[in-house]
Design a protein around this nucleic acid. Structure first.
Lengths: 199, 199
DNA sequence: CACGGCGGTTAGCGAGCGTTAACCTGCCCT
DNA sequence: AGGGCAGGTTAACGCTCGCTAACCGCCGTG
Protein backbone atom coordinates (compact mmCIF):
# COMPACT_ATOMS: atom_id res chain seq x y z
CA UNK A 1 0.00 0.00 0.00
CA UNK A 2 1.54 3.25 -1.07
CA UNK A 3 1.22 6.11 1.32
CA UNK A 4 0.31 8.80 -1.17
CA UNK A 5 -1.90 8.27 -4.18
CA UNK A 6 -1.65 10.50 -7.23
CA UNK A 7 -3.10 13.91 -6.40
CA UNK A 8 -6.80 14.45 -7.10
CA UNK A 9 -7.35 17.90 -5.74
CA UNK A 10 -5.43 21.01 -6.70
CA UNK A 11 -4.23 21.32 -3.12
CA UNK A 12 -2.62 17.91 -3.20
CA UNK A 13 -1.13 18.66 -6.57
CA UNK A 14 0.47 21.81 -5.20
CA UNK A 15 1.83 19.99 -2.16
CA UNK A 16 3.29 17.30 -4.34
CA UNK A 17 5.14 19.72 -6.59
CA UNK A 18 6.21 21.93 -3.69
CA UNK A 19 7.75 18.97 -1.90
CA UNK A 20 9.67 18.02 -5.02
CA UNK A 21 10.99 21.52 -5.51
CA UNK A 22 11.81 22.09 -1.83
CA UNK A 23 13.73 18.82 -1.76
CA UNK A 24 15.65 19.74 -4.89
CA UNK A 25 16.65 23.28 -4.13
CA UNK A 26 15.73 23.93 -0.52
CA UNK A 27 12.85 25.89 0.95
CA UNK A 28 14.49 29.28 0.51
CA UNK A 29 15.74 28.33 -2.92
CA UNK A 30 12.28 28.02 -4.44
CA UNK A 31 9.96 30.92 -5.16
CA UNK A 32 6.19 30.87 -5.08
CA UNK A 33 6.05 31.71 -8.77
CA UNK A 34 8.04 28.57 -9.45
CA UNK A 35 5.71 26.42 -7.41
CA UNK A 36 2.75 27.92 -9.25
CA UNK A 37 4.36 27.31 -12.61
CA UNK A 38 4.91 23.66 -11.68
CA UNK A 39 1.16 23.14 -11.44
CA UNK A 40 0.25 25.35 -14.39
CA UNK A 41 -1.02 28.37 -12.50
CA UNK A 42 1.02 31.34 -11.64
CA UNK A 43 2.33 32.76 -8.40
CA UNK A 44 -0.27 34.44 -6.26
CA UNK A 45 -2.97 31.94 -7.21
CA UNK A 46 -1.44 29.67 -4.58
CA UNK A 47 -2.88 31.93 -1.92
CA UNK A 48 -6.35 30.65 -2.79
CA UNK A 49 -5.22 27.31 -1.34
CA UNK A 50 -2.65 28.13 1.32
CA UNK A 51 -2.10 30.93 3.79
CA UNK A 52 1.47 31.30 2.59
CA UNK A 53 4.68 29.56 1.68
CA UNK A 54 5.36 28.61 5.28
CA UNK A 55 1.97 26.94 5.51
CA UNK A 56 2.89 24.60 2.67
CA UNK A 57 6.08 23.48 4.37
CA UNK A 58 4.27 23.10 7.66
CA UNK A 59 1.61 20.92 6.13
CA UNK A 60 4.23 18.76 4.42
CA UNK A 61 6.33 18.25 7.54
CA UNK A 62 3.45 17.71 9.92
CA UNK A 63 1.96 15.30 7.42
CA UNK A 64 4.99 13.12 7.02
CA UNK A 65 5.89 13.15 10.70
CA UNK A 66 2.37 12.09 11.60
CA UNK A 67 2.30 9.36 9.02
CA UNK A 68 5.63 8.00 10.18
CA UNK A 69 4.60 7.97 13.80
CA UNK A 70 1.13 6.60 13.22
CA UNK A 71 2.37 3.94 10.85
CA UNK A 72 5.00 2.91 13.37
CA UNK A 73 2.52 2.75 16.21
CA UNK A 74 0.16 0.68 14.13
CA UNK A 75 2.86 -1.82 13.22
CA UNK A 76 4.05 -2.25 16.79
CA UNK A 77 0.47 -2.54 17.97
CA UNK A 78 -0.29 -5.23 15.43
CA UNK A 79 2.79 -7.24 16.31
CA UNK A 80 1.96 -7.08 20.00
CA UNK A 81 -1.70 -7.94 19.49
CA UNK A 82 -0.69 -10.99 17.47
CA UNK A 83 1.64 -12.01 20.28
CA UNK A 84 4.70 -11.95 18.05
CA UNK A 85 8.24 -11.49 19.36
CA UNK A 86 9.66 -7.97 19.74
CA UNK A 87 12.17 -8.78 17.03
CA UNK A 88 9.29 -9.04 14.59
CA UNK A 89 7.96 -5.67 15.63
CA UNK A 90 11.40 -4.25 14.98
CA UNK A 91 11.58 -5.79 11.54
CA UNK A 92 8.16 -4.38 10.78
CA UNK A 93 9.31 -0.91 11.83
CA UNK A 94 12.31 -1.23 9.55
CA UNK A 95 10.22 -2.34 6.59
CA UNK A 96 7.77 0.46 7.09
CA UNK A 97 10.47 3.08 7.24
CA UNK A 98 12.13 1.70 4.12
CA UNK A 99 8.87 1.90 2.21
CA UNK A 100 8.64 5.52 3.20
CA UNK A 101 12.21 6.32 2.28
CA UNK A 102 11.97 4.69 -1.11
CA UNK A 103 8.49 5.86 -2.06
CA UNK A 104 8.38 9.36 -0.61
CA UNK A 105 11.93 10.44 -1.20
CA UNK A 106 11.24 14.14 -1.39
CA UNK A 107 9.31 14.17 1.87
CA UNK A 108 12.01 12.25 3.72
CA UNK A 109 14.57 14.73 2.49
CA UNK A 110 12.53 17.69 3.69
CA UNK A 111 11.84 15.94 6.93
CA UNK A 112 15.43 16.06 8.09
CA UNK A 113 16.70 19.10 6.19
CA UNK A 114 14.16 21.87 6.36
CA UNK A 115 12.76 21.53 9.84
CA UNK A 116 14.26 24.72 11.15
CA UNK A 117 12.81 26.85 8.38
CA UNK A 118 9.49 26.43 10.18
CA UNK A 119 7.92 29.06 12.45
CA UNK A 120 8.58 28.23 16.09
CA UNK A 121 5.13 26.86 16.94
CA UNK A 122 4.94 24.44 14.03
CA UNK A 123 8.51 23.35 14.56
CA UNK A 124 7.70 22.35 18.11
CA UNK A 125 4.78 20.29 16.89
CA UNK A 126 6.84 18.48 14.27
CA UNK A 127 9.66 17.84 16.69
CA UNK A 128 7.24 16.29 19.13
CA UNK A 129 5.98 13.91 16.47
CA UNK A 130 9.53 13.03 15.50
CA UNK A 131 10.48 12.45 19.12
CA UNK A 132 7.53 10.14 19.64
CA UNK A 133 8.55 8.15 16.59
CA UNK A 134 12.12 7.87 17.86
CA UNK A 135 10.98 6.80 21.30
CA UNK A 136 8.78 4.13 19.74
CA UNK A 137 11.84 2.67 18.06
CA UNK A 138 13.94 2.98 21.22
CA UNK A 139 11.33 1.05 23.16
CA UNK A 140 11.28 -1.82 20.70
CA UNK A 141 15.07 -1.84 20.34
CA UNK A 142 15.47 -2.08 24.09
CA UNK A 143 13.12 -5.05 24.18
CA UNK A 144 15.12 -6.87 21.54
CA UNK A 145 18.52 -5.77 22.88
CA UNK A 146 18.10 -5.49 26.63
CA UNK A 147 21.79 -5.04 27.44
CA UNK A 148 21.97 -1.80 25.41
CA UNK A 149 21.85 1.32 27.62
CA UNK A 150 19.11 3.77 26.77
CA UNK A 151 21.29 6.64 25.55
CA UNK A 152 23.20 4.31 23.28
CA UNK A 153 19.97 2.80 22.03
CA UNK A 154 18.77 6.27 21.10
CA UNK A 155 22.03 7.10 19.35
CA UNK A 156 21.92 3.78 17.52
CA UNK A 157 18.38 4.46 16.36
CA UNK A 158 19.35 7.89 15.06
CA UNK A 159 22.24 6.31 13.21
CA UNK A 160 19.94 3.76 11.62
CA UNK A 161 17.60 6.53 10.53
CA UNK A 162 20.57 8.13 8.85
CA UNK A 163 21.31 4.85 7.14
CA UNK A 164 17.74 4.32 5.96
CA UNK A 165 17.32 7.92 4.84
CA UNK A 166 20.54 7.88 2.86
CA UNK A 167 19.13 6.86 -0.49
CA UNK A 168 16.70 9.76 -0.92
CA UNK A 169 19.64 12.15 -0.66
CA UNK A 170 21.35 10.61 -3.65
CA UNK A 171 21.63 13.07 -6.49
CA UNK A 172 21.56 10.32 -9.08
CA UNK A 173 19.24 7.58 -7.78
CA UNK A 174 19.54 5.72 -11.06
CA UNK A 175 22.84 4.37 -9.73
CA UNK A 176 20.89 2.30 -7.23
CA UNK A 177 19.98 -1.36 -7.72
CA UNK A 178 16.29 -2.01 -8.35
CA UNK A 179 13.81 -1.25 -5.62
CA UNK A 180 13.49 -4.75 -4.18
CA UNK A 181 17.23 -5.27 -4.02
CA UNK A 182 17.79 -1.89 -2.39
CA UNK A 183 15.03 -2.50 0.14
CA UNK A 184 16.46 -5.89 1.09
CA UNK A 185 19.95 -4.44 1.36
CA UNK A 186 18.86 -1.61 3.62
CA UNK A 187 16.85 -4.03 5.74
CA UNK A 188 19.85 -6.29 6.33
CA UNK A 189 22.09 -3.35 7.10
CA UNK A 190 19.67 -1.74 9.54
CA UNK A 191 19.07 -4.97 11.40
CA UNK A 192 22.79 -5.68 11.66
CA UNK A 193 23.59 -2.12 12.75
CA UNK A 194 21.12 -2.38 15.62
CA UNK A 195 22.36 -5.81 16.67
CA UNK A 196 25.95 -4.60 16.59
CA UNK A 197 25.07 -1.70 18.86
CA UNK A 198 24.53 -4.06 21.75
CA UNK A 199 27.91 -5.74 21.72
CA UNK B 1 45.29 15.02 15.53
CA UNK B 2 42.35 17.33 15.07
CA UNK B 3 41.68 18.44 11.54
CA UNK B 4 41.16 22.11 12.26
CA UNK B 5 43.05 24.13 14.87
CA UNK B 6 41.56 27.28 16.38
CA UNK B 7 41.59 30.04 13.77
CA UNK B 8 44.60 32.32 13.69
CA UNK B 9 43.82 34.49 10.69
CA UNK B 10 40.72 36.55 10.20
CA UNK B 11 39.89 34.52 7.10
CA UNK B 12 39.85 31.29 9.08
CA UNK B 13 37.82 32.94 11.79
CA UNK B 14 35.21 34.00 9.24
CA UNK B 15 35.08 30.54 7.70
CA UNK B 16 34.65 28.97 11.10
CA UNK B 17 31.71 31.17 12.06
CA UNK B 18 30.15 30.97 8.61
CA UNK B 19 30.19 27.18 8.72
CA UNK B 20 28.51 27.22 12.11
CA UNK B 21 25.80 29.60 10.95
CA UNK B 22 25.23 27.87 7.60
CA UNK B 23 24.87 24.54 9.39
CA UNK B 24 22.42 25.99 11.88
CA UNK B 25 20.11 27.93 9.60
CA UNK B 26 21.08 27.01 6.06
CA UNK B 27 23.01 28.98 3.48
CA UNK B 28 20.07 31.12 2.39
CA UNK B 29 18.96 31.55 5.98
CA UNK B 30 22.05 33.51 7.00
CA UNK B 31 22.83 37.05 5.93
CA UNK B 32 26.27 38.50 5.39
CA UNK B 33 25.67 41.06 8.14
CA UNK B 34 25.10 38.18 10.51
CA UNK B 35 28.34 36.48 9.53
CA UNK B 36 30.18 39.74 9.97
CA UNK B 37 28.63 40.30 13.39
CA UNK B 38 29.75 36.84 14.47
CA UNK B 39 33.38 37.86 14.02
CA UNK B 40 32.97 41.40 15.33
CA UNK B 41 33.06 43.27 12.05
CA UNK B 42 30.05 44.25 10.07
CA UNK B 43 28.63 43.20 6.76
CA UNK B 44 30.52 44.46 3.75
CA UNK B 45 33.90 44.15 5.49
CA UNK B 46 33.74 40.46 4.56
CA UNK B 47 34.39 41.46 0.97
CA UNK B 48 37.97 42.35 1.94
CA UNK B 49 38.48 38.62 2.50
CA UNK B 50 36.12 36.85 0.12
CA UNK B 51 34.73 37.54 -3.32
CA UNK B 52 31.22 36.97 -2.02
CA UNK B 53 28.97 34.78 0.04
CA UNK B 54 29.13 31.98 -2.52
CA UNK B 55 32.91 31.98 -2.29
CA UNK B 56 32.73 31.22 1.42
CA UNK B 57 30.51 28.21 0.90
CA UNK B 58 32.68 27.03 -1.97
CA UNK B 59 35.82 27.21 0.12
CA UNK B 60 34.17 25.34 2.97
CA UNK B 61 32.82 22.54 0.78
CA UNK B 62 35.92 22.13 -1.34
CA UNK B 63 37.99 22.13 1.83
CA UNK B 64 36.10 19.42 3.61
CA UNK B 65 35.70 17.25 0.52
CA UNK B 66 39.42 17.44 -0.13
CA UNK B 67 40.32 16.64 3.42
CA UNK B 68 37.99 13.66 3.48
CA UNK B 69 39.36 12.27 0.24
CA UNK B 70 43.00 12.95 1.01
CA UNK B 71 42.72 11.56 4.52
CA UNK B 72 41.04 8.45 3.17
CA UNK B 73 43.68 7.95 0.51
CA UNK B 74 46.44 8.35 3.06
CA UNK B 75 44.91 5.77 5.39
CA UNK B 76 44.41 3.20 2.65
CA UNK B 77 47.90 3.88 1.37
CA UNK B 78 49.42 3.38 4.80
CA UNK B 79 47.57 0.13 5.39
CA UNK B 80 48.67 -1.23 2.03
CA UNK B 81 52.26 -0.12 2.47
CA UNK B 82 52.39 -1.88 5.82
CA UNK B 83 51.03 -5.01 4.17
CA UNK B 84 47.98 -5.14 6.40
CA UNK B 85 44.74 -6.89 5.45
CA UNK B 86 42.04 -4.96 3.56
CA UNK B 87 39.79 -5.27 6.60
CA UNK B 88 42.23 -3.08 8.51
CA UNK B 89 42.16 -0.47 5.78
CA UNK B 90 38.38 -0.48 6.03
CA UNK B 91 38.47 -0.02 9.78
CA UNK B 92 40.90 2.83 9.35
CA UNK B 93 38.54 4.50 6.88
CA UNK B 94 35.69 4.14 9.33
CA UNK B 95 37.71 5.61 12.21
CA UNK B 96 38.83 8.53 10.11
CA UNK B 97 35.33 9.35 9.00
CA UNK B 98 34.03 9.15 12.56
CA UNK B 99 36.68 11.59 13.73
CA UNK B 100 35.51 13.97 11.06
CA UNK B 101 31.85 13.57 11.86
CA UNK B 102 32.35 14.09 15.59
CA UNK B 103 34.91 16.89 15.43
CA UNK B 104 33.73 18.90 12.44
CA UNK B 105 30.01 18.54 12.81
CA UNK B 106 29.09 21.78 11.09
CA UNK B 107 31.18 20.98 8.03
CA UNK B 108 29.75 17.48 7.70
CA UNK B 109 26.27 18.95 7.84
CA UNK B 110 27.02 21.46 5.11
CA UNK B 111 28.74 18.79 3.11
CA UNK B 112 25.57 16.86 2.48
CA UNK B 113 22.96 19.59 2.78
CA UNK B 114 24.11 22.66 0.95
CA UNK B 115 25.93 21.25 -2.04
CA UNK B 116 23.40 22.42 -4.57
CA UNK B 117 23.50 26.02 -3.43
CA UNK B 118 26.87 26.18 -5.16
CA UNK B 119 27.44 27.71 -8.59
CA UNK B 120 27.61 25.02 -11.24
CA UNK B 121 31.39 24.97 -11.71
CA UNK B 122 32.23 24.64 -8.03
CA UNK B 123 29.53 22.07 -7.52
CA UNK B 124 31.09 19.90 -10.19
CA UNK B 125 34.44 20.13 -8.47
CA UNK B 126 33.03 19.18 -5.07
CA UNK B 127 31.03 16.34 -6.53
CA UNK B 128 34.15 14.96 -8.16
CA UNK B 129 35.96 14.95 -4.83
CA UNK B 130 33.01 13.28 -3.14
CA UNK B 131 32.81 10.68 -5.88
CA UNK B 132 36.49 9.86 -5.53
CA UNK B 133 36.02 9.42 -1.80
CA UNK B 134 33.07 7.10 -2.34
CA UNK B 135 34.94 5.06 -4.91
CA UNK B 136 37.84 4.69 -2.51
CA UNK B 137 35.47 3.15 0.01
CA UNK B 138 33.81 0.97 -2.61
CA UNK B 139 37.21 -0.39 -3.64
CA UNK B 140 38.14 -1.37 -0.11
CA UNK B 141 34.69 -2.76 0.64
CA UNK B 142 34.85 -4.96 -2.43
CA UNK B 143 38.20 -6.32 -1.31
CA UNK B 144 36.83 -7.24 2.08
CA UNK B 145 33.46 -8.45 0.79
CA UNK B 146 34.15 -9.91 -2.64
CA UNK B 147 30.72 -11.47 -3.14
CA UNK B 148 29.01 -8.07 -2.96
CA UNK B 149 28.08 -6.71 -6.42
CA UNK B 150 29.45 -3.28 -7.21
CA UNK B 151 26.17 -1.38 -7.32
CA UNK B 152 25.13 -2.84 -3.99
CA UNK B 153 28.53 -2.04 -2.54
CA UNK B 154 28.07 1.56 -3.58
CA UNK B 155 24.59 1.73 -2.11
CA UNK B 156 25.86 0.12 1.10
CA UNK B 157 28.65 2.68 1.36
CA UNK B 158 26.20 5.54 0.89
CA UNK B 159 24.04 4.05 3.60
CA UNK B 160 26.98 3.83 5.97
CA UNK B 161 27.84 7.46 5.27
CA UNK B 162 24.30 8.28 6.28
CA UNK B 163 24.79 6.31 9.45
CA UNK B 164 28.09 7.94 10.33
CA UNK B 165 26.87 11.42 9.48
CA UNK B 166 23.73 11.05 11.56
CA UNK B 167 25.04 12.49 14.80
CA UNK B 168 25.99 15.93 13.46
CA UNK B 169 22.39 16.45 12.40
CA UNK B 170 21.12 16.02 15.94
CA UNK B 171 19.52 19.20 17.21
CA UNK B 172 20.43 18.38 20.82
CA UNK B 173 23.80 16.59 20.77
CA UNK B 174 23.91 16.65 24.55
CA UNK B 175 21.66 13.60 24.43
CA UNK B 176 24.56 11.57 23.07
CA UNK B 177 26.82 9.39 25.19
CA UNK B 178 30.36 10.71 25.63
CA UNK B 179 32.60 10.97 22.61
CA UNK B 180 34.52 7.72 23.05
CA UNK B 181 31.35 5.70 23.60
CA UNK B 182 29.65 7.26 20.61
CA UNK B 183 32.67 6.69 18.40
CA UNK B 184 32.90 3.04 19.41
CA UNK B 185 29.18 2.58 18.87
CA UNK B 186 29.26 4.08 15.39
CA UNK B 187 32.30 2.02 14.52
CA UNK B 188 30.58 -1.25 15.48
CA UNK B 189 27.44 -0.30 13.61
CA UNK B 190 29.24 0.74 10.44
CA UNK B 191 31.32 -2.41 10.35
CA UNK B 192 28.29 -4.61 10.90
CA UNK B 193 26.23 -2.76 8.31
CA UNK B 194 28.88 -3.35 5.68
CA UNK B 195 29.30 -7.00 6.59
CA UNK B 196 25.54 -7.51 6.48
CA UNK B 197 25.42 -6.04 3.01
CA UNK B 198 27.21 -9.05 1.61
CA UNK B 199 24.81 -11.70 2.86
C1' DC C 1 -31.91 34.58 -14.72
C1' DA C 2 -29.56 36.80 -11.52
C1' DC C 3 -25.73 36.19 -8.65
C1' DG C 4 -22.26 34.81 -5.42
C1' DG C 5 -18.21 32.62 -4.64
C1' DC C 6 -14.36 29.84 -6.26
C1' DG C 7 -10.21 30.03 -8.55
C1' DG C 8 -7.80 32.29 -11.56
C1' DT C 9 -5.25 36.80 -13.65
C1' DT C 10 -1.76 41.05 -13.59
C1' DA C 11 0.17 45.03 -11.20
C1' DG C 12 2.54 46.58 -7.58
C1' DC C 13 4.24 47.23 -2.84
C1' DG C 14 7.59 46.76 0.86
C1' DA C 15 11.15 44.38 3.02
C1' DG C 16 15.42 42.10 2.94
C1' DC C 17 19.19 40.65 0.59
C1' DG C 18 24.02 40.63 -1.62
C1' DT C 19 26.95 43.78 -3.35
C1' DT C 20 29.34 48.24 -4.56
C1' DA C 21 30.92 52.93 -3.63
C1' DA C 22 33.13 56.27 -1.13
C1' DC C 23 35.55 57.25 2.61
C1' DC C 24 38.60 56.73 6.77
C1' DT C 25 42.45 55.05 9.81
C1' DG C 26 46.58 53.01 11.31
C1' DC C 27 50.77 50.56 10.21
C1' DC C 28 54.85 49.31 7.62
C1' DC C 29 58.49 50.45 4.69
C1' DT C 30 61.71 53.33 2.58
C1' DA D 1 57.98 62.38 6.81
C1' DG D 2 55.26 60.47 3.71
C1' DG D 3 52.75 57.20 0.94
C1' DG D 4 50.42 53.01 0.11
C1' DC D 5 47.96 49.23 1.35
C1' DA D 6 45.25 46.28 4.49
C1' DG D 7 41.12 46.31 6.67
C1' DG D 8 37.63 48.61 8.48
C1' DT D 9 33.22 52.03 8.31
C1' DT D 10 28.37 53.78 6.56
C1' DA D 11 25.28 54.79 2.71
C1' DA D 12 22.99 53.36 -0.90
C1' DC D 13 21.60 50.68 -4.94
C1' DG D 14 19.10 47.19 -7.31
C1' DC D 15 17.09 42.93 -7.38
C1' DT D 16 14.35 39.31 -5.73
C1' DC D 17 10.78 37.61 -3.14
C1' DG D 18 6.53 36.94 -0.45
C1' DC D 19 2.34 38.79 -0.34
C1' DT D 20 -1.79 41.99 -1.22
C1' DA D 21 -4.96 44.48 -4.20
C1' DA D 22 -8.01 44.82 -7.73
C1' DC D 23 -10.21 42.74 -11.18
C1' DC D 24 -12.54 38.93 -13.95
C1' DG D 25 -14.91 34.71 -15.87
C1' DC D 26 -17.18 30.52 -14.97
C1' DC D 27 -20.58 27.61 -12.89
C1' DG D 28 -24.05 25.88 -9.71
C1' DT D 29 -27.87 27.11 -7.42
C1' DG D 30 -32.62 29.62 -5.51
Amino acid sequence: MTTHATPRTRREQILREASRLFAERGFHGVGVDEIGAAVGISGPALYRHFAGKDAMLTELLVGISSRLRDGGRRRVEEARAAGRAPSEALESLISGHIDFALDDRALITLHDRELDRLPEADRKRVRQLQRQYVELWVEVVRETHPRLPEDQARAAVHAVFGLLNSTPHLSRPSALPDRATTAALLHRQALAALAAAER
